[in-house]
């Protein structure tokens, strides 16, 4: 337990020391433009609701600008994802309490939103793809969306930050406020689960 705490604090201290390639943004506004769509989809997959996802992303933006805009550009991304993870954790806790109290209305609106939300419905596809390829990609994305939503919360977060955002283990640990070992465990389990769920949709 002490080792995990020590490792987590080391992760926090190393945010500013991360070796970085040239960043595609130099000010907070450009950073938010760079990250907002991905953050929205992450929140959307986590919550299953578009409006909730938009609210969470807006709150995270507010917090970053208010508290951390004075930090260096290298630190914005891990800080933003830490804020986003905290907001999502708060959402899970509120939802758990709400579901216990209002058990008869559990996740009805979220389920309806999931039924009608097709993440690839508006996809114009890529210029190089044939219509069949576009259809297959659309189906694959839908299946991926559903599979990621089925993961436990921590595995889902670790997967999104490591695989989607490309954060290192150290950066992910800082964002999730856990140890690097926990990140590796969560990520490994997430990948194994996704492989099992998606093997019919992959051209392995």
């Amino acid at each position: 337990m002490k080792q995990q705490t020590h490792k987590a604090s080391q992760s926090q201290n190393s945010i500013a020391d991360l070796a970085a390639a040239p960043l595609p943004y130099s000010n907070v506004e450009d950073f938010l433009k760079f990250i907002e769509r991905r953050a929205f989809h992450m929140a959307r997959i986590n919550t299953g609701d578009t409006e909730t996802a938009l609210d969470i992303v807006q709150d995270a933006m507010y917090k970053l600008v208010e508290k951390y805009s004075h930090k260096t550009a290298k630190e914005w991304k891990p800080l933003f994802y830490r804020i986003l993870s905290s907001k999502l954790t708060d959402y899970y806790r509120r939802k758990a309490i709400r579901d216990k109290v209002f058990i008869w209305s559990k996740s009805q609106t979220a389920d309806e939103d999931q039924q009608f939300y097709d993440p690839a419905a508006s996809a114009p596809g890529r210029a190089s793809e044939t219509p069949d390829q576009m259809l297959m990609r659309s189906q694959r994305i839908n299946r991926l969306n559903e599979s990621v939503q089925q993961l436990p919360n921590r595995q889902r977060q670790a997967f999104m930050l490591r695989c989607w955002e490309g954060l290192s283990t150290i950066e992910t640990a800082a964002a999730m406020q856990c140890s690097e070992g926990s990140v590796k465990t969560h990520y490994s389990r997430a990948m194994n689960s996704l492989r099992e769920m998606l093997e019919d949709y992959r051209n392995d």
Binding site: K33, R37, R38, T50, R137
Partner: peptide, 22 residues
């Protein structure tokens, strides 16, 4: 790909949120 195909309403709302935060 999912990110690139974000719908126009969501893009607009995100821009609004960004401007409010800034």
């Amino acid at each position: 790909t999912l990110e690139e195909t974000t719908g126009a309403p969501e893009i607009f709302r995100l821009a609004q949120a960004r401007n409010r935060a800034l």
